[in-house]
């Protein structure tokens, strides 16, 4: 599965997108963006898409996140795990994200709604983001990729 981020298109340039990649037992999530923050946002959309169709999620509320880690890669895993925790404990799904990174600190907001089994038809529960195939990197053209495998 892959897709452009049409939701929030007013603030996300066309180069921001996400995709899934294959892992033997599980699934990889990968976000691309002009900035590191956009790549993190798109990786979060890819995470949601493991569970349900991101475009089918209404925005009835939002929650804020704050994460801290010593490098970009650990920060990505922390960010995705923070989302997984909120999805599990609030029983919500999120379709749109904004991320700001300042040094080792990440501040983010996620918009979404309570999980509706009949409408969202969730495919699978995500147990955690892992360090497998973990990569946060800037390409020669200046764009960013943020990816890891998630355990389902």
């Amino acid at each position: 599965m892959d897709g452009d981020s049409t939701r929030g298109a007013a603030v996300v340039p066309p180069s921001a997108r996400w995709e899934h990649f294959a892992h033997g037992a599980d699934i990889g999530v990968r976000g691309f963006g002009v900035t590191r923050e956009q790549a993190f946002e798109q990786a979060a959309v890819a995470l949601t898409a493991v569970v349900t169709e991101p475009l089918g999620i209404a925005e009835t509320g939002s929650i804020g996140f704050a994460c801290q880690a010593p490098d970009d890669e650990l920060l990505l895993v922390d960010w995705l795990n923070a989302l997984i925790y909120e999805m599990a404990t609030r029983k919500w799904v999120f379709g749109r994200f904004t991320v700001r990174i300042n040094g080792q600190d990440l501040a983010a907001r996620a918009w979404g709604e309570a999980l509706d089994g009949a409408r969202h038809r969730p495919a699978v529960e995500v147990k955690g983001a892992t360090y497998t195939a973990l990569r946060v990197a800037q390409a020669a053209d200046g764009s960013w990729v943020a990816q890891c495998v998630v355990d389902v």
């Binding site: 880690a69 010593p70 650990l74 895993v77 922390d78 795990n81 997984i84 925790y85 599990a88 404990t89 147990k127 955690g128 983001a129 892992t130 360090y131 355990d151």
Partner: peptide, 17 residues
């Protein structure tokens, strides 16, 4: 279930660091 997943997540990071 979720308890085991969270323990794994948290200790993985702590052990890496």
């Amino acid at each position: 279930r979720g308890l085991g997943h969270q323990i794994g997540t948290e200790f993985l990071k702590r052990m890496v660091m």
